[in-house]
């Protein structure tokens, strides 16, 4: 089950809140549900830990991946292929994994016209444990910067609060208040809270979205 409502979904937020891992999960679940899904890696800021790194696994699962022209290479050149525009206009199901902060959101402005037309769901990802966005005020401030740069308004909040491998039920449960405050300050609905698959919460809130951890270091891979 995936929680997406629109044909085009934009995933944005502060660096390192977990946008890429969330985008990969959404794409895989859409593909699993039989959608013709395209995942666009629009991160032209950070060359590490990006959706395009997982192209093989995603392609195998039936997800079409479009990344910057030189993603996964040794070149640090921010160049985006024309196929992105086509996908936003015509794709059956499109998920856009945007780079962090306003710097990362800059690339979205290029597709302003196509996105206005597509009326995308714009999910703003928050993580209470991510340095520099640990207070609702900080998270809201960065949202404003992202929206101004991207020429897009967020339509919902995703609470992706986690502490990587140290994430416990308590980690997630003690982020509810933080997420509520962000929603209150922005007037945006909480679209869902993520929870690692297999972790049971004592205080469940709706809606929850179960995710797997795909974005890992080379020494954390399964063997």
């Amino acid at each position: 089950m995936h929680p997406l409502e629109s044909r085009v979904t934009v995933v944005c937020g502060h660096y390192g809140t977990g946008k890429t891992n969330l985008s990969i999960n959404l794409a895989l679940d859409c593909a699993g549900a039989g959608d013709d899904v395209t995942l666009i890696d629009m991160d032209i800021v950070n060359p590490y830990f990006r959706s395009a790194d997982y192209t093989d696994m995603l392609t195998e699962a039936g997800v079409r991946v479009i990344g910057p022209n030189f993603a996964n290479s040794n070149l640090d050149t921010p160049s985006l292929p024309g196929s992105i525009r086509v996908a936003i206009e015509d794709g059956e199901r499109v998920i856009i994994d945007v780079g962090g902060d306003d710097a990362g959101a800059t690339a979205l402005a290029v597709y302003r016209r196509q996105l206005e037309e597509a009326e995308p769901d714009v999910l703003y990802v928050i993580n209470k444990y991510r340095s520099l966005t640990t207070t609702p005020e900080e998270a809201v401030e960065i949202l404003g910067e992202v929206e101004r740069t991207a020429h897009l308004k967020a339509t919902g909040i995703v609470n992706n609060s986690h502490l990587k491998h140290l994430t416990t039920a308590e980690t997630i449960e003690s982020s509810y208040g933080f997420a509520d405050k962000v929603c209150e300050h922005t007037g945006l609905p909480l679209r869902f809270t993520t929870v690692p698959r297999g972790l049971s919460l004592s205080k469940e809130i709706e809606p929850l979205y179960q995710i797997d951890v795909h974005v890992r270091t080379p020494w954390e891979q399964d063997w």
Partner: peptide, 14 residues
């Protein structure tokens, strides 16, 4: 409290 940081950010803050 524990927060998530990139190695590079942690160098700067430390």
């Amino acid at each position: 409290e524990k927060v998530l940081m990139k190695g590079n950010e942690a160098i700067a803050e430390a």
